[in-house]
Structure formats: C-alpha cells, structure tokens
Design a protein around this nucleic acid. Structure first.
Lengths: 235, 235
DNA sequence: CTTCGATTAAATGAATGCATAATGCTTTCG
DNA sequence: CGAAAGCATTATGCATTCATTTAATCGAAG
C-alpha cells in the first residue's frame, strides 16, 4: 500500500526518527500483547504519562490508534481499558484469520521462491524438535515464524498488516492456552501437510488445510477460555 | 468484539454524546470516501481546523485514526495526505475483500433467516431494475446494500468492520470506474447466482462465486486505474 | 547563469492549562 | 438503618502555547 511506514520500511526506517506517539503506540501494543498490561485493566492516562515520562497529548494519540486496532477500549469521558478477550471475540476473529491465512497460502504458492520454501522447511524441522522435547514456548515461537513466512511469501503487504492486527488481538490468549497432547500432535500433523502442499505449490490444498488448521486452533483456545470465563464468574 | 461502540450500539448510541474527535473522524472519512477530499491532496491541519472550527488536538487524533485505517498517510513532521489508490493497492485489497466476502457468504448461509433472504431478494430485483435502465449510480448503491446484507447475515461484527475498512479504501475507485456493458451484464449474472446459492443456503458455492465476483470486479477497476495512471504520468 | 548555502517563515510535534463530565464519599432525611 | 442527594475530587476533552523540523526564498560565490 502507499503507506509510508511499509513502503520505506527497509530503506529508511532505521534513521527516520520516530515521533513520541509512534514509539508509545508500539511500546504499549507490545505490553498488551505480552500480557504486561493485563486484559481488563484500566489505563489511566496520567499513570502511563508518568511511566513513560511524556505528556498526555502523544499518549492520547497512541491510545486512539490502539483503540482502532481493537486492543483498547475507549469510552468518552470514561477512559481506556485493555480490551478483554472473550469467547465471542475469538469466535469472530479466528474464522477471519483462517480466511486470511487461506488466501495467504494460495498467494504464497504462486509467488514463493525455492529458497523461501527451504527456509520454512528449516523452521518446520526446528518446530518438530520443540514438539518432541515438549517445549511449548519455543514451539509457539517457531510456529508463529512459519505463519509469518507464509504471509511474507504471499507478497501482499495489506494482507500481512490485517493478519497481524487480528493476531495481536488473540495472541494473549494463544500464549497461555495449554494444548492437550492430542491437539498438539494433531497440529503438528497439520503442519506436516502444510509443508507438503507448500512444496508442491498446491495452492488450493494449502488453502484448505490452513483454514482447517485455524479452525482447530480455535477449538483449543475456546476450551481454555471457557474454563477461564467460568472461573472469572466466581469473583 | 468487546468494543463498546458495537456492544452498546443499539442500546446507548443514540443518546451517547459523541466527542469532537469522533465526529471529525467520521466526517473526514466520509469526505474522503465520497471524493470531496481528492486522493493525493494534502491535508493541512490548520485548514481543516478552520473548516470545522476546532482546535488541532482533536483533529490530530482523528487523523491518527484515519491513518491506521489507511485512508490517510502521515509522515512525521511532513503532514498528512489523502492516500492515493494505485493499481498495486487494489491488487492487494481486492483479494482480501474476496476472501472476507467468501467467508461472509459461508457464515451467512449458516445463520441467515428466511426474512433476511427475502429482503435481499427484494434488493436484488431492485438492482436488476437499475441494470435494465442503465442507472449506474443507483445500481452501485443497491449492489452495496446487498453485500452489506450478506455481511450482516454472517453475524460476525469483526468481519463486517474489517470488510468496511477495506471497502472504504477502494470505494473511491469503484464509484468512478465505468464498467463495460459486457462486464456489467456479467456482474449481474454473478449476482443471479449469488442469489440462488444464498436461497439454497449452499455456503460452499456461495463462497466460491463471491470470491470470483470480487476477482472480476478487480479487473474492472484495474483497467480503469491503469488508464488513469497513464494519464497521470503526463502531468 | 547556475548552484550551494544560510536565513526565515510556516507547519507539525509536544506540553501545559482550563473546562467539564464522572465517580466516590459524606451527609441528611425518610 | 438504608437510600438518595449534594459536594468534592479525579480524570478526561479540548484549547492554547511553546519547541522543533521542514521548506522556501534570497543572496553570494563559482
């Protein structure tokens, strides 16, 4: 897109001084995604201003941006919250991510170069290693990099942006969700198929399996969230 | 999502006072979509402030939001432009819209009620009337309402939001693009099929035809934009 | 005449201050 | 003793002001 941030990303970003509100947006977004700012907590402007040592103006601009991204809720005269993830949310978001990943797979098969497939294959093997050692954290990490690589191969910046924006909203949940061993092995199997279709450049099949992969992922997160919401009712 | 704007939409929005920056965001967004603010024009803060009679603070907040929506480009210390629509842009955006509409169709078939199908059928007939009378403007209008109705039937607010955001970015082009008669009749035929599959609640087929519909739409807009960019090169 | 540089004007980035709406507490009355 | 109303405090919305960057114009040197 004609968005300067993406267009000039590689060439200029390094020495382009960022404005305060940009840095704030990134920083706060990260805090939310990583869970440092827990879902549901209020975000008083004054407090964050003190924390970052800035005035309210750039902070408020950052909050507006995060609100349109869906990470924060703003209500006039009532302030800002870190938006909660509910079952209803992920029921909405995962199918969309599925559709986007399906498209990404289709496009990737058209555009991907051999060396990129090689790189993904490597990531895939790495992920298998983590699976066998039951290293959940590194597994997630590598898993995410694979999906990012497929997105990159799709050569559609807007698609990447949209996907990331949605992913950020649910990532907090995905980090914590404990997969059952059964689901984990199933996911790994799906990834095997993803790899196969990608190497065959079979866009249609890749598209389908990616969509299904997301549907299954939804089930995992869903179960976890239902438990959590049940517990939350108690307090 | 847990966005208060959507959650409280029916119940409270009517008597919830809007803030200045919200009104500004809406107003400017509309101006851009309708083409009152032409693509590529600079948007000096001072000028818009004078126009709306507000200070720079809420205006700047509105611009930040529009920038994340992709309607405006912001470059630090250099100001804001209404983002241009290039061929590259629509090549990126239309496939995504296709994927989203396909999903919408699939979900709609699961959730749509008979009376909703009836309403769409009515819009469909209305659109056919505009087609036969060659009324391009009303045709577009009705066409858009049909797609909106399908989205509504999908019962996925996030999907609707995402779709609208993308649609806004290309709508300016779609308004102006002149369809050839051949393309126009093809589009009408596609809509006939859309209607059929929707009434059969055949999600898979509806999904496919909607995706294809968007692909064809892309071709139309593409041709028009290529012409335009050629002309633009002259100046 | 062209080009490089400096100075100045204009526009954006950020901070401060003021007005207003919302919340919590106290007080009073039923 | 409980509930409602009024007041005080706090936080947000917006305007204003100050600082920094960009760019434009004018002048001087090659």
């Amino acid at each position: 897109m004609s968005d300067p941030k993406t267009m000039l990303a590689e060439g200029r970003q390094t020495f382009r001084r960022k404005t305060l509100h940009e840095e704030l947006t990134e920083s706060i977004r990260e805090q939310i995604i990583l869970g440092d700012l827990a879902a549901g907590t209020r975000v008083p402007e004054k407090e964050l201003c003190a924390l970052y040592g800035v005035s309210r103006t750039p902070l408020r601009e950052a909050l507006k941006v995060l609100a349109t991204d869906g990470l924060i809720n703003l209500e006039p005269n009532r302030g800002a919250w870190v938006s909660k993830i509910t079952c209803a949310d992920i029921d909405e978001v995962f199918p969309i991510m599925g559709a986007l990943e399906a498209l990404a797979g289709e496009l990737a098969c058209r555009h991907i170069r051999d060396e990129e497939i090689g790189a993904i294959r490597k990531l895939h093997r790495e992920m298998l290693g983590h699976y066998e050692k039951r290293e959940m954290g590194p597994y997630f990490e590598t898993n995410q990099r694979i999906h990012e690589a497929i997105l990159a191969a799709a050569r559609n910046n807007t698609l990447t942006t949209q996907y990331r924006s949605l992913a950020a909203r649910v990532r907090r949940a995905r980090y914590v969700a404990n997969m059952t061993m059964q689901r984990w092995s199933q996911a790994t199997e799906e990834h095997e198929q993803i790899m196969t279709y990608l190497e065959r450049r079979d866009g249609e099949s890749l598209s389908k399996i990616l969509k299904k992969h997301l549907e299954n992922k939804l089930e995992t997160v869903r179960h976890w969230l239902e438990e959590k919401e049940k517990n939350a009712d108690i307090e």
